[in-house]
Every structure is written in C-alpha cells, then in structure tokens.
Design a protein around this nucleic acid. Structure first.
Lengths: 392, 392
DNA sequence: GGGTCTTAGTTCACGACCTGGAAGAAGGGA
DNA sequence: TCCCTTCTTCCAGGTCGTGAACTAAGACCC
C-alpha cells in the first residue's frame, strides 16, 4: 500500500508543484496559459502565483502580446532564487559545478584523485563545494542542495557497490552531511547523465525513454511515465549485461555473451585485435581510429558492432516500448555520429514492426560532461516536487 | 505535462479510493486499522466508511477481538455490490465468465469459433454476456463492466494488431458498446493473465514484477511501481522477441535469434526434431512427452531450454530489477514444475549478482484459465481507483 | 482625447473538505 | 458494576479551489 491519503494541505502543495513544474519545464508561461495547461481556475492560478512570487521562487519576465487585449505577463522560475551544486565522482577526478536554477554554470572545480577512497572523495567534494560557493560569490544558505553522481549502484543516497572505485557499502550522503549543512543527494552516474538529457537535452518532452550509454562499458537510464525508473532496489537499467549472444564472449561481469562484451569500446577493440587489427594508443584514440579506418577488417568490426548494438536497441524497443532512445557515451556518440542511419535501419531488422515504428533513435546533445549537471538537477527536482517549499 | 491539478473534490475521491483499495486488497480491515494504514483521522475514516456503507460498496463482516475493549468491526467490499464480467477471446473459442466482486465465478459460457472475424467475436461475446447474466440471475444494471482480453496489441480499448486472429485496427470496445450498455474495457491477453496473477496469484504484494508467459509463443506482462507498465503505445512486454542468440534461429516474427525461437514450445520441439528426436501428437502432448523423456537428446534439449530461458530471465533481472518474476504459460509451468531450481541457478550464471539476489522466481498460481479473471479485474480496478463511484 | 472593446489578472463570498478535541455510545471482560 | 477499547457524533477552526463580479491594461475608432 503506497497509496497515500490527501489532506487539505497536500492539495495546495500539489497545485503549487503543478504550476511550478509547468513554469520550469515549459519555459516562460503567462498565468492565462497556466490556467489552460493545469486546468486550475484563473482565480487559483492567480492566488498560487502571487504566493510563489512573494516567496521569490517565481518572477515576472516581460510580457507578450495577447489576442487583442491586455498583454500577458510571462512568468519564470527566478534563476537566482537558489543555486544548486552537482558533483561527478570519477576514477581519476572529482568535478564540482555550481549552477543557478536556469542551470547556467557559475563556477567549476576539478580535482584529480589518485586513490579514490571514500574519505578522499568526501574531502574533495566538500572542498569543491566551498570553492565553487566562494568563487561564485553567493551565500552557502542560497545553495538548495548538492547532488553527487557516482558510477555504481546507489540505494537511498548510499553507494552500495561501485566496482570501478572499489567501494562497497559507503554511506556517502551521510559522510558528506557531516561536513556541510547543505542537503545532499547521491545517485548513479548513468542515471544522472540520463536525467540531464531528459531535462535539458535530447530527451526533453519524452515520457517513456531510454538513455543508452556506450563508453568503455555499457549502461542505460530508464525513464518510465515521465520519471526515472529504478526497479525494486535501484539497480534497473543494466542494459550492458544483457545476454545477446548466448554462450558468446566472456564479459568482465563473468557472464558470457553480454552486450557490453560486443559493443563496449573495450570489447570492440578486443574483437578488432583478434581479427588482426592494430590497436594503438589509449582506448579512445584507438576506437576513433578504428571508426575512421577504411581497412576491410576494421569495416567489418564496425558493421558488426552496429549490428550488435542494434540488437541491443531492439531488445529495448520490444521490451519497454519507449518513444525515444537517446544514444550517448563517448563511444556511442562517436559511432552514432557516423552511422546513426545504419543503426536505425539495423534496429528495424531485429525489432517488432509496431514498437519500432513508434520509437525515434537520437544522439545525446549534452556531451559527456553533463553528469554533474544531471546530479545538480536532483535538488531542483525536489524543489519542483515540493512546489517550491524549501527543505526544512 | 501529465501532472494534474487537485481540487477539493479530488481529495474526497482520492481518500475514498485509498480506503476502498486498502479494504479490497488487504482483506477485511477494521476502521481502527484503516486509520493506522491510511494515516487519516479516525473521524474521517468513520465518515468515509459510513458513506461507503450507505452506498453499499462496503459492508461489515463480523468482528474481531480488540486489545481488551470493544471488538473491532471488520469491513470488506460487499461481494454482491456489483458484478463483473471477463471475456477471453482465443483463436478457437470465446469464454465469458461472470464474477462477484470477491472474484468468485458465478457463471461461465464457452463458445467455440471457427473463423474469428471481429463480427463473429462481438456476437459471441455479447451472447456470452447475456447468457452469464441470465444464468446467474442478476440484473444487467448490476454489472459494473465487461473486460475483454485479446491476444494482440491493444491501444485505448481498440485492437490494433492481433496476428493470431488476423485482425488489424479493430475498434472492439466500440463495436461491443453498440450491443450493450455495460462499460467495456479491452486489453491484451498476456497483460490480463499478468494482472490476475498480480492481484490474486503469485504476484500478490509485489510492486515491481514481471509475469513471464511461455506457451507456444513467449510474452510477458511488466509491472512497475505497482501498476502495469505499457510503454508509450501499449506494446511493452514483448519479451519473447528479445534477441538472445545474435544471428541465431529464425523466429516467426522474421528476426533471428529471438528468445521465443528457443524456449517457445514450438521452437523447443523444432530443436528436438532437428536433434533427431521424435515428436508425436499435438504440441502440448509432445512437449510434456519431451520433458519426461529420459533419452539423451531430450535431456540435452531440456537443459538447453533451461539455459536459454535463464538468459531471458537474467536479461529481465538486469534491465528492470524486479522483485519477483512469475513464470507461467502452459509450457512455462510444465517446465517450471520439474526444473525450477535448475532454472533459478542458471539465472544466477547470467545475471548480475546484486539484482539476482533481490529477485525471487516463482510459478504462476492460477493456471492458464485466469485470463478472463484478469480481464474482469479491469472494471474492479476502475471502481477502486474512483473510490467506489459508479461509471456514468 | 475620450469612449469602447477585448483580454488578463484579482478579489471575495461560498461551499466542500479534513482535523483535533471532547463527549458519548457500544460491546465485551473482570 | 466498573473498566477498557473501538467507534460515532458533533463542532469549531482552518484550508482550499471556484464562480462571479471587478479591475487593469493595451488597441482601436471617431
């Protein structure tokens, strides 16, 4: 039973949330447009908006011609009402960025790390946090929240398992909270990149989508009915470890024939090497090299990769019937920029006709640095959900 | 924007819905237990329950010892408040069943069909409807709704595509509505079987689950966050056409290497035949025969089937992180009854450790005749959602 | 420049709703 | 008979969205 009672107060919060979310996500809107979209009465919109303006969450932003009468006053979420901070914890660095509510970057702090122990990471995130706050000249109280993205399984703001960092059961949010009064949210990196694309990139407007990330490894973020789908215990979206070639190549997860073993950059290069190809330089250079090579074995490997990836996409199309699949990750983008049409066509060969006709396959728009941006949206989403009420 | 405004009236409806749903799904409850579960005030519970009793939706059903004082009066949804009808449209027959709200079957009508044209099916469903109403001696006005399950893609109560019946774009609900005043709901057969299991069978209590159906073909019903997940355009759940052996066996959908081509009864028997096995009698007999055969090739085929099915399960486990997978369908049950433990172990080889540890794999409890039952829950779910308000 | 039209936004009385508290009725056990 | 717990009833208090009447602000016309 997770159905919840409703009280008289929930009503106002819920309506504030509806209005605020509309204003935030559908650009500047007039009160009149809000009455239409929310189907609230003009009186209520006026009332609620007045309250939001009085609190400073919303502000008027110019006006626009009406249909012959008094002009409509546009409303937007005040970008400087509060600020949000996003952090990306990678294997080799910690990046912290401060945004206003319009998600403009106001300050950034990068810090390389050698041994990413939890204590080390906590220290650098907190240092980055105060550094970006100072750099942007705002008050700490003006920061709405800190979102942290970690590559690994995250449950309830705690990192449960992060193989690349070698972490297990690290209560990251709790540890960070000891060093700051700012509310802390922790989530999975792939989900955060997905969230960024869904809010500000190629996923805008879609309610059922998958953001598929192909880098050295392969992952995805699922969006169902407008919000991120996490599964029972937050580990949904492990698309990379879907068996696609039964009994096939060994994957680093231990299983055989995972998608990742075929389309992850590492797997692709392994396959190229086995076919006699020459792999030089770091993974990324080599991968890009492979993509632009005109040699016969390289072309075969690339074509095969497209085929495997297409089968992986088709599995998503058939199983979850998304309206959009957004391909990202550095290897995914590199591949997609050259071969998107082939990929689309190939998906059609593996997917069922109907769901295939309903899906559009596009590339990420935000590049790979959007992880911190995505993490920073966590406190924003909370603000919108609570109708502009501040935490505590 | 699918967030909806809330008005002062939605509040009462929503609270009625919360109470009614609790009573229906969590068995007879006393008012006192309702105040705890819903966190509504005792005054409101009393008030709302009185209203529901006055309308006849809820009734008192005995009492139970309290903690020393006045006994608690138990409440239940009045089984005879209204009745619901479920229909299953198959290739060879139409089955119509009438239930009370406790989902006891009160009457059943089966009708064989030779050429399942839409007109024919409409005729038989309507005949079945009036036949079960007459047989059970109730008034047509007492029937809350008719749910119809069709094997095929259903969008907005219209059958979009049903290959086995050879239908395309059949507005079934609309056609049926011309012959009856009872509200008609149409949905996909696999989803309805899934719904039945989720409400009354092996899925009870789970909020993130997959009901996997293996018969001659293979399908599934996804349940996310407590309700059925349909995807953008209602065709989610096509698990059977997930590529599992890239470039593998031809599937009847046209693609290569679909799960269905390996674990659907038809595919299994084909593989057995190719391995030199002797397939006699109809599909079902032959399949059961194969399962109990002790010959070496048969054992291999069965073991392979378990392996492929396990990979298909593992893909679900990794991608959607369900708390439960319910295996059904006649072939699935036959296989599961003998080999469930092997299947579970095999899934562990393909799935990631964490999500695998969080899932339980169980068999359907309701048998394959639960399709009409599932379809009949459609109007019940509507009733619960609307807090007991009758349609129209 | 003044009147008028049109559309946008505001104000206010009203009815619907939940809550908390208090008082009491109901039903059983000691 | 007394006590205890579970409902029920009632009322004042507070919140909310709504419809209707009202004000605001431009455009247009003479």
């Amino acid at each position: 039973m997770e159905v919840r009672r409703t009280t008289v107060r929930d009503m106002r919060r819920s309506n504030r949330s509806v209005i605020l979310t509309s204003i935030y996500r559908e650009g500047p809107l007039s009160r009149q447009e809000l009455t239409v979209r929310t189907s609230l009465s003009a009186a209520s919109v006026s009332n609620l908006v007045a309250e939001l303006i009085a609190e400073g969450v919303v502000e008027e932003a110019g006006s626009v011609e009406s249909e012959g009468g008094r002009p409509r006053v546009l409303l937007r979420v005040a970008p400087t009402f509060r600020y949000v901070v996003g952090a990306e914890v990678g294997e080799t660095r910690v990046r912290v960025e401060l945004f206003d509510l319009a998600m403009n970057v106001l300050a950034r702090a990068d810090h390389p790390i050698s041994t990413p122990t939890p204590a080390e990471v906590v220290k650098h995130v907190l240092e980055g946090l105060s550094s970006v706050i100072t750099a942007s000249g705002i008050q700490p109280q003006q920061v709405l929240g800190l979102g942290v993205a970690v590559a690994g399984v995250v449950e309830d703001n705690a990192v449960v398992d992060a193989q690349t960092l070698g972490w297990e059961a690290v209560p990251l949010a709790e540890m960070l909270a000891k060093g700051t009064d700012i509310p802390v949210h922790v989530d999975n990196g792939a989900n955060m990149l997905g969230q960024a694309e869904m809010y500000f990139g190629a996923g805008r407007g879609a309610t059922d989508a998958v953001v598929a990330l192909v880098g050295s490894g392969v992952g995805s973020a699922l969006v169902a009915g407008g919000s991120s789908y996490r599964g029972t215990r937050s580990s949904a979206g492990e698309w990379g470890h879907m068996t696609i070639v039964y009994g096939g190549r060994q994957c680093r997860c231990g299983a055989l024939g995972c998608l990742e073993a075929y389309v992850g950059a590492e797997g692709v290069l392994d396959r190229y090497r086995e076919a006699g190809g020459l792999v030089e330089g770091d993974e990324e250079t080599a991968f890009v090299e492979l993509l632009s090579s005109t040699s016969e074995p390289a072309a075969t490997i690339v074509a095969d990769t497209i085929g495997y990836l297409a089968a992986g996409f088709a599995n998503l199309v058939n199983l979850v019937n998304p309206e959009r699949i957004v391909l990202g990750g550095w290897a995914g983008l590199a591949l997609g920029e050259k071969h998107l049409d082939e990929l689309r066509a190939e998906v059609g060969k593996h997917a069922l006709r109907r769901p295939y006709a309903q899906v559009s396959i596009v590339l990420c728009e935000l590049g790979r640095d959007a992880v911190a941006l995505g993490a920073a949206t966590l406190p924003v989403v909370r603000l919108l959900r609570d109708g502009g009420a501040l935490p505590h």
